[in-house]
Design a protein around this nucleic acid. Structure first.
Lengths: 129, 129
DNA sequence: CTTGACCTTCCCGTGACTGGAACCCCCATT
DNA sequence: AATGGGGGTTCCAGTCACGGGAAGGTCAAG
């Protein structure tokens, strides 16, 4: 399979697939003409990576998870730790964003949004002054 | 005031302040020795920027907001539109993160987290296979 | 006169790609 | 044989909002 087929199958852009090879996440073979030749295992890994990335894992997490995936003697505790750490990051980010949303939506509610210059949003950003 | 004092007052790293000058958000004066000299208005702008950035506005949004802030004839509708667009982005991001969190926490709950290799997290990432 | 805390500019690195240029390969049609 | 089009390849630059660190100028204190 060439990169275009793999891209269609995995939903990953060809650019991304090349990038993943570049950083040694996958190691497709090469045809004589220099084209990458992907085996089923490569496609499988790419699907794995796509799902992990969709869950927000960093590339380095993905590398770790992929190694665990391929290691038949892994301990599920190691996987769980990676996932829990990541979950904590996500929850922290959600908390930050919720705080922003609350502040912002209050300000927006307070703003008339008409053609007059008076604006509580700018007032707040300017330091109530 | 030199950059160190301004940094202490605004809570912004000196690097950030220099960067903001670089991209023309602020225009401090210069002393004969080449040191930046900050006026009260510069500090005020930096505080504005710090608060806007803390609410997650992009630098370009900040540029827009600052221009509106300085324009006495602005319409509050323009400010409100910027804020509402940004709020929408935040809410989209929150929705994404919530979905990730839900999926992840289910997987984590299902994972024994012991020394055995069997792991629903990897099973899911690998495509249930 | 030296120390040490400031300040300056400049360049590289971050994460995870994306866009684009310049070029090669292969098949089909004119 | 030439051409066209749709693959593929590499490499370089850009994204966003800075942060790290080098190399060097400036200034007040001891």
């Amino acid at each position: 399979m060439n990169i275009g087929d793999v891209s269609a199958r995995t939903g990953l852009p060809a650019k991304t697939i090349r990038y993943y090879e570049d950083i040694d996440l996958i190691k497709p073979l090469r045809d004589d003409n220099g084209y990458r030749r992907f085996r089923d295992q490569d496609v499988h890994k790419l699907n794995f990576l796509g799902r992990a990335r969709a869950l927000g894992f960093t590339i380095e997490d993905c590398r770790t998870l992929l190694a665990l995936y391929e290691d038949e003697t892994r301990a599920s505790a190691d996987v769980k730790r990676v996932a829990r750490d990541h979950l904590a990051q996500i929850e922290a980010k959600i908390a930050d964003l919720n705080a922003m949303r609350d502040t912002l939506s209050h300000l927006i509610d307070a703003c008339a949004g008409d053609d007059r210059p008076d604006c509580p949003i700018l007032k707040d950003l300017g330091g109530k002054g």
